[in-house]
Simulated scan of single mutants.
Amino acid sequence: MNQQDIARRLGVSRASVVNYLSEARRRGYVRVTLEPEIFRTHELARDLVDRFGLADALVVPPDMAEPGRSLERVTVAAGEWLPRLLGPGDRLGVAWGETVYRIAEAAPRVALADLTVVQLVGSRPAALGFAAETCSATLARRFDAHCVNLHVPLLLSDRDLADRLRNEPVIAEQLRAVAGCNKVLFACGTCHSGSHVVRTGLIDADSLAQEVATRGAAGVICGRLIDGDGNPVVTESEERMIGVSLDEMRGKDMALLVGSGANRVRPMLAAIRGGYATHVATCADTARRLLAGTGARG
């Protein structure tokens, strides 16, 4: 039955049904899942693996009734897939932002033996709970895992202060945990005026536009800019940042890159070309654009 049918049967408005279902999901009474194994065998998923040399890929078909829900569907499927990519003794590094937060919220409640979840970047105020510590702590709770938070700001006011904090014994130990992750979950952000790095104040819109125009900045991984080939675009603020480095994001046993939408194609291509991703989760339209090498600028 659709929502209108349910509303008619119960004698309430459709809006009430929407609210009831939302509350039921929040309380855990109702859970909507997508079976990831089905989407791994999608023809576009196999094409992504072959074209880019990935270990695996997951492609979610569109919802023809609600095409605007592609990110939600992708993050739900990625949340279901993630625990199947983890094993005992793994150290999962978790990035931040809306996509990662949605995955954490969608992940099933399943106990994974001897798993450590690590916050990859320092703290920074972010809207709607997308902060790094929220993303890592939520996933750790879902998987009944040990959580290592990075108890420092992501961006400091000066380089000396950042250096001193990095050398503090407690912080140095946490940064060793960051560097020691063998698996990571991340998204590659966009480079335009509405980007996550602009909204959170890591870089102002004018400076970001300059980096795009003069140095080809194409994406953002854990607050750090990369060009279209995945090479670092080093900015002045990086020496004042505390978090995972781009070098530390490469060479992982598993690196799950998740994204959906035309504006994510260029960043995702940059991350894939740069060797940051071993696994990709996306929607069918984005997969086609990745294979064609086309997407919205920025």
Results as ranks from 00 to 15, higher is better:
L154C: 03
D114E: 11
A140H: 01
L21E: 15
G122R: 06
A217K: 01
G129Q: 00
N263M: 04
Y276T: 02
E98K: 15
R224H: 10
G189Y: 11
V60R: 02
P125L: 08
F130M: 11
L120Q: 06
R8Q: 13
G201Y: 02
S207A: 15
F186P: 02
G216D: 00
H146T: 14
G219Y: 09
G216H: 07
L185S: 01
T286G: 10
A162N: 04
M64I: 10
D56M: 05
E211R: 04
E173A: 15
E72M: 07
T214I: 00
I6R: 07
L115V: 02
D253E: 12
T282H: 08
N167M: 09
Y276L: 01
E173F: 11
R288M: 07
A95T: 13
E43L: 12
N167C: 08
V94R: 04
A78C: 09
I221F: 12
L269C: 07
E23P: 00
E43D: 14
L208K: 09
T99K: 05
E66P: 00
D229Q: 10
A277K: 05
N231Y: 12
R266F: 00
V197S: 07
E173T: 15
A287E: 07
I221Q: 10
L202V: 12
G89C: 09
H146W: 00
V280H: 07
E37R: 15
T33F: 09
A172D: 13
R40L: 10
R40N: 03
L161C: 05
E236G: 08
T99E: 03
N182Q: 02
Q3D: 09
E98G: 14
I6H: 07
T200M: 02
A65E: 12
D229R: 11
L185P: 03
T200F: 10
L48W: 02
A255I: 00
V32L: 14
A262G: 09
C222Y: 08
L291R: 05
S245N: 03
L48T: 03
E168C: 04
T200V: 14
L291C: 04
E248L: 08
F186N: 02
E35K: 13
E105C: 03
C191E: 09
C135N: 13
L208N: 07
G261K: 10
L155Y: 05
W81M: 15
A262R: 06
R84A: 14
R176Q: 14
P169K: 03
D90T: 07
A111K: 14
S22D: 13
L112Q: 10
H192W: 10
K183P: 06
A107Y: 05
Q4V: 14
E133W: 14
Y276H: 03
A104T: 01
M64E: 15
D285F: 08
M254Q: 07
E37H: 14
V212P: 10
P108C: 05
G274Y: 05
H151D: 15
G11M: 12
A78W: 01
R215M: 07
I103Q: 11
A24N: 05
Y29M: 12
N19S: 13
A179E: 14
L202I: 12
N263G: 01
G223I: 04
R176H: 11
E43S: 14
V100D: 02
A209R: 13
A140P: 03
D206R: 15
N231I: 00
L291M: 06
S260W: 04
R289S: 15
A209S: 15
T294Y: 00
Q174R: 11
L120V: 10
L156E: 08
D50F: 03
A107T: 09
T134H: 13
G93F: 09
R250Q: 04
V49C: 10
S207Y: 03
